[in-house]
Each structure stands twice: as structure tokens, then as C-alpha cells.
Design a protein around this nucleic acid. Structure first.
Length: 272
DNA sequence: TAGAAGGATCAATCAGCCCG
DNA sequence: CGGGCTGATTGATCCTTCTA
């Protein structure tokens, strides 16, 4: 799906309003605009010239896989459009915490696969792992997870782009928490994970930490990894649905299948 | 070309929301 | 609950266009 080249919000002077206006005039992509601007004035001489230059810059940055340059050209609100071009550089992550917002178990899925990090064991390796991915995906992570991690670590890495699904799902006319969204789009979880919620994570951690209950840790870890993994399904579903709602032509790319990764989850949990 | 009006973006403020 | 960012809202500013 080509989302990036359908936005014109690349310069000061073109916001959501002008963009909608261009779409309404039949200009949907950068190429459409370039053709129209070559024939006559589209917005104004000055804005046309600036937008043409910005489009050229964006094209060049795309060719170079230059995420930093692109993230500066496109307003943060539209950063989700970059995902399709940088799937290989994305990290999906979710944290569990104790009652004091101290991270206990953190799940990550990136190009290398899935990984779990736990306080008192492997949590110190988390910053290095996340630092490998310049694009982060989370649910409410810009509000909760990232600040909590920043508080827990002296020098925590920063992403170049952080896509927070909490706000993105509104593009697909959805609201609510991650679990609710999963239900709404028919994304399943195994029976023993149904009904487990964020607040249960606090209890499960205590049962492991104070009583050494290994089953509690297993359940907590599995729950956490499902949170992280399902982010990808929810994100891709949301993008697909957004395209559908806008009637953007969609080249049918199947939504990511979790199968192989779910097998890895079982292995990882059993190895605890 | 100059002045003014209209319209769109931008900046600041506020409440809502979802995380553990 | 406590935290804190996003998105909606409102007011201010900039740009463009119209008229003479």
C-alpha cells in the first residue's frame, strides 16, 4: 500500500484542509500533483514550487531509506504512512510493570524475532535491543511505556518514529484498549489468556517475585508477548481499513500471519 | 500596486483516555 | 488511581485573492 505518496502535508502552508482540497480536485498522489503543476498553477506559484521541491526531497529520502529525513518532512500525525517502507526496521513492544510503574517484563518483536526481558535477569539488555530499531510501535506507549522506560533507565534510546496505535485506530473508526480492538477485528488469544488484563500483570509479577511461582511468570510472559505481537496485526489491519474507508486503491497485501511467531512464544515460555 | 477581506494554518489551552 | 500525550477547540496570524 502506498500511503506516503498520498499525503501533501510536506510544507508549511499545506495542512489537512488543503490536502483534502487537492484530493477533491482529483490529485491523489505526488505524481498527480507534479503533472497538474506542470500544466498550470494548482494552489499558488510559491506553494506549488515549495511542494514540488518537498516531493523531490521525499522521493530522494525514500530512495536512500532515510527515515530521519522523512520523519522531518512529514508531520508526526502522519508518521504512520512510513510504516510500509520500514517494516524491516520496526520494533513492536509492550511493557508490564509493578504497581509503581517500574518495568518488570518487556516483550519485543522486531526483525530478529521475539524476545522477552525481565527485571533482575535480562532487562538491562532491553535498551540495546530497542536501539536497533528506529521505528517503534506500541499501544499507548508514547504516553505510558516509553516515559516509564525513560524513568527506569538513565539513558534510554529514542526512536526516530513512534507509532502509537491508541490514536491510530481512530482512523479506522475504532476506540478503546488493545484487547477491545483485538475482539473487534477477530484476533484471537488462547483460552488461558482471555480475561488477563494489565492490572493482573502486577499480581502475576508479585506471585513470581515473592513466591517464586514459575507458572505466574510463564503466564505473565506469554500475556506480554501476545500484547507485543498483536500490535503488528492490529496496525496492519488498521492501515488496510483506513485505506478502505478513504476508498484508496489497495494492492491486496495480506495482513501479517502470526503462526510462526506464536510457535516461538510457546518455546520461549517453556524455556523459562 | 495597494488595501482589505476571507480563509486556512498555526499556537496555546483543555479535557479525555488508556496504560499498569 | 496517577500520569501525560493526543486530539479537539478556540483565538491569532499569515497568505492569497479580489477589487479598483
Amino acid at each position: 500500500m502506498k500511503f506516503l505518496e498520498r499525503t501533501f502535508q510536506l510544507i508549511k502552508g499545506v495542512g489537512p484542509w488543503r490536502e483534502r482540497d487537492l484530493w477533491a480536485r482529483g490529485l491523489f498522489t505526488w505524481a498527480d500533483f507534479e503533472q497538474a503543476a506542470a500544466r498550470s498553477v494548482v494552489m499558488s506559484e510559491r506553494l506549488d514550487a515549495e511542494l514540488l521541491a518537498a516531493i523531490a526531497q521525499a522521493r530522494a529520502a525514500l530512495d536512500d531509506n532515510h527515515l530521519t529525513a522523512l520523519s522531518k518532512l512529514v508531520p508526526a500525525k502522519e508518521h504512520w504512512r512510513l510504516y510500509g517502507h520500514f517494516v524491516e526496521h520496526a520494533a513492536f513492544f509492550d511493557i508490564e510493570a509493578d504497581g509503581d510503574d517500574q518495568p518488570t517484563v518487556v516483550g519485543v518483536m522486531d526483525h530478529e524475532g521475539i524476545a522477552t526481558f525481565r527485571r533482575g535477569h535480562s532487562l538491562q539488555q532491553l535498551p540495546a535491543r530497542l536501539a536497533k530499531s528506529p521505528l517503534w510501535v506500541s499501544f499507548n506507549g508514547s504516553v505510558y511505556d516509553e516515559p516509564a522506560l525513560r524513568k527506569a533507565f538513565d539513558d534510554f534510546p529514542r526512536p526516530i518514529v513512534h507509532i502509537d496505535l491508541r490514536f491510530l485506530i481512530r482512523h479506522a473508526k475504532l476506540r478503546g484498549g488493545l484487547k477491545g480492538v483485538e475482539d473487534a477485528i477477530g484476533l484471537g488469544r488462547p483460552p488461558h489468556l482471555r480475561g488477563v488484563k494489565g492490572l493482573d500483570a502486577i499480581r502475576l509479577w508479585r506471585e513470581f517475585n515473592f513466591n517464586g511461582d514459575l507458572n505466574a511468570l510463564r503466564l505473565l510472559t506469554e500475556y506480554n508477548l501476545y500484547d507485543a505481537i498483536n500490535l503488528r496485526s492490529v496496525l496492519e489491519w488498521t492501515l488496510w481499513r483506513t485505506a478502505e474507508l478513504h476508498a484508496w486503491p489497495v494492492t491486496k497485501e495480506p495482513i501479517w500471519e502470526r503462526g510462526n511467531v506464536l510457535y516461538d512464544v510457546s518455546r520461549l515460555v517453556l524455556a523459562l
